[in-house]
Nucleic acid binder design. Structure first.
Length: 659
RNA sequence: GCCGACGUAGCUCAAUCGGCAGAGCAACAGUCUUGUAAACUGUAGGUCAGGGGUUCGAUUCCCCUCGUCGGCUCCA
């Protein structure tokens, strides 16, 4: 009898010798709970897989990003099993882990109802409790095709294996590697096969290794992400390494719901969406109007300081202008339909750039004028498809703080660089502090116009600047505007969500199409480079984002009402009216609540409307020429002399601080 | 645009298995007024999203339109 051969491996940096046939789980002494998989030579593996000579082995902790993804992926399998048990006719699509959870797509005759989800979740809990074993089994293409003959979508994936594009739509989760594998779910007592799925893995060892999960919602989803394909029914769920983490996540969702700008917009009387106007067409009420005005005033000042020139252009134009710009051939389905006047076709504008081009072209331009920075709060209208309209973040009528900068090719890089600095400084003043950049480029699709060489040059200029900024840069291939590549600034809000705000787009096409020219120092005529720049994205969207970022509790400089004066009793109102008069002279937006509510009710009302400062006055304060603060967090500061109080408020407004 | 859910007073929600539509808050009126999140009493408020159909009778059942919400696709 020969001795069992031995293998040398490296475990978490230390050399070890183990018997052949040892699994990663054994080598790592993994419990399948805190450690759910292994990483061998960089590859994720099942704990049940055998080690190989020379392996570098690391544990994959359940609370690591990979660990969570594995738990989520395994939970998706459990869900699919439950669905097929309850709905035997359901055909499997794909079921990958995603941020915070997972989904699985099914082709079913009838979409899932909330009751269906409850049943599925109940069955899932039974499966988890049963502790079914995830067992990996390599198969040939032919074997897989035979075993999965009843799963048309899986068959399609087998055909795609390794093909380009498989990675983009999540299909690689099913058929990622060189060889196909099927995961069998086995009854832990009898070893009987309960269910199986084509899958790359790895998985947690048993369904008991899934610590916490919950089904969230269902909805339609196109097969492989294309609207040309049939629509499947997707169920989303969340799964976590512990019940606590899951509760934390669910709590975050609740928090996000409370911050929803659509809810706060109504509660704080900022804006509304009258259905009489049509979908995606907001109106701003006086309080929302104040915030907009503050935003716009601020932008006017900053742009004035930064060498921008203010222009104005109309909302409609002859359609011909958009032929020239290239919008109609490439962008028409996003535009409102034309209407005819005096035998000529007109359009509502979806973008301001063509009109700014006409201003540039209105007379001969000299290189001495460049960079020429035209800016406008330009209202544009886009025919957004009915299913995508969403609060202020996706509307059909919006105002962009739009600017078009015309410069020489030599100035291009410097101009983009200073633009990026400008953009970030503005966003910081609005209280946003965490950013990353996204570089949207063209791919080989035919929705882009112009010479690829021009695109390359423009893309490189943007990339160079983005890299120099030191901010994280994420690639977004195929995400460019039809006329040029763009950098977008993504900002993180107070609860960690990111929003696309500013965009900086380079355009080497429109200047040619509009035959824009300037005269260079040597007397020659040159085509300028054009940079599109919307800093807020749109004023509407930015206001929506700020509303969610601040949860409606705007910093004093933006708050519609900055101060509410609250008399302790009716007799104290005139004193506060005097104070209010003084404060208004300092530009402070103050109201005195002289209603016949009781003082406590007035505080409650002011608190609910998220006013930054409450100033209370009763006999005691009046005797001392003072006033008492109540802040939004409930703290108070009593007996502050009136002038001092006004100074404190004026100072907070001026410095744009949050209180 | 596609899949699904939903639409009752300004807001949040009841009720009617087809038979005169109800509450709290908000609004309005009156009474009351002392220290940091809800005083009391009363009044008014609805073509039950809009249109069509079935029915003796529709807010309730069916169809269409509009709008909202959750997804997909798309996007500032």
């Amino acid at each position: 009898m020969s001795a069992v051969p031995e293998l040398r491996i490296t475990l978490a940096g230390a050399e070890r010798v183990v018997a052949e046939g040892t699994t990663y789980g054994e080598a790592l002494q993994a419990d399948g709970r805190s450690v759910v998989a292994a990483r061998a030579n960089g590859e994720l593996r099942d704990l049940a897989a055998p080690v190989a000579e020379g392996d570098q082995v690391e544990p994959v902790a359940v609370d690591s990003p990979d660990g969570r993804a594995i738990v989520r992926h395994s939970t998706a399998h459990v869900m699919a099993q439950a669905v097929q048990e309850l709905f035997p006719e359901a055909k499997l699509g794909i079921g990958p882990p995603v941020d915070n959870g997972f989904y699985y797509d099914f082709d079913v005759k009838n979409p899932f109802t909330p009751e269906d989800l409850k049943r599925v979740e109940k069955r899932m809990r039974e499966i988890v409790k049963q502790g079914q074993i995830f067992s990996r089994r390599p198969v040939s293409d032919e074997e897989a095709q035979e075993e999965l003959a009843a799963e048309p979508y899986k068959l399609e994936l087998i055909g795609l294996k390794g093909g380009a594009g498989a990675q983009e739509d999540g299909a690689d989760v099913e058929v990622g590697g060189a060889e196909l594998t099927i995961y069998d779910n086995l009854d832990p007592k009898t070893g009987d096969l309960c269910w199986k799925d084509l899958c790359r893995g790895p998985h947690v060892p048993t369904t008991r290794s899934i610590p916490a999960f919950k089904l969230m919602r269902s909805g339609g989803a196109y097969w492989r992400g294309s609207e040309k394909n049939p629509q499947l029914q997707r169920i989303y769920g969340t799964a976590w390494e512990s019940r606590d983490k899951q509760d934390e996540y669910l709590h975050l969702l609740e928090e996000a719901e409370k911050r929803d700008h659509r809810r706060l917009g109504a509660e704080l009387d900022l804006f509304s969406f009258p259905s009489e106007l049509g979908s995606g067409l907001p109106v701003f009420h006086p309080k929302g109007g104040i915030i907009r005005k503050e935003m716009e005033d601020y932008m006017r000042r900053r742009q004035g300081e930064a060498g921008y020139e203010f222009v104005n252009t109309p909302h409609i134009t002859k359609s011909q202008l958009f032929e020239t710009s290239g919008h109609l051939p490439w962008y028409a389905e996003d535009m409102f339909p034309p209407f005819e006047l005096e035998g000529v076709e007109y359009r509502v504008k979806p973008m301001n750039c063509p009109m700014h081009n006409l201003i540039f072209r209105a007379r001969g331009r000299s290189y001495r004028e460049l960079p020429l920075r035209l800016c406008e709060f330009g209202s544009v209208y886009r025919y957004e498809k009915s299913g995508v309209v969403h609060g202020l973040t996706r509307v059909r009528g919006m105002t962009q703080d739009d600017s078009h900068i015309y410069c020489t090719r030599e100035q291009m890089v410097g101009e983009i660089k200073s633009l990026l600095t400008f953009v970030l400084s503005v966003l910081r003043d609005f209280g946003l502090s965490e950013f990353y950049l996204e570089l949207s480029t063209r791919d080989d699709s035919d929705k882009f116009i112009g010479d690829p060489a021009d695109w390359d040059e423009a893309t490189e200029a943007l990339r160079q600047t983005a890299l120099e900024s030191g901010l994280e840069l994420v690639d977004d291939p195929g995400g460019a505007a039809f006329y040029g590549p763009k950098i977008s600034v993504q900002a993180k809000d107070a609860i960690g969500r990111t929003w696309q705000l500013s965009t900086i787009q380079l355009d080497l096409n429109q200047p040619k199409r509009f035959e824009l020219e300037y005269q260079a120092a040597d007397g020659s005529r040159q085509t300028p480079v054009m940079i599109h720049r919307a800093l807020f994205g749109s004023i509407e969207r930015f206001l929506g984002v700020l509303t969610e970022h601040y949860a409606g509790a705007f910093p004093p400089w933006l708050a519609p009402v900055q101060v509410v004066g609250i008399p302790i009793a009716e007799a104290h109102a005139p004193y506060l009216q005097d104070l209010a008069k003084k404060a208004r002279e300092r530009g402070i937006r103050i109201e005195v609540d002289a209603s016949d509510d009781r003082m406590q009710k007035k505080i409650r009302n002011a608190q609910k409307s998220k006013v930054p400062f409450m100033l209370l006055a009763g006999d005691e304060d009046i005797a001392n020429g003072a006033v008492s603060f109540r802040f939004r967090n409930g703290e108070q500061k009593n007996g502050v002399p009136v002038d001092e109080a006004i100074n404190e408020i004026a100072d907070a407004i001026e410095r744009r601080i949050q209180v």
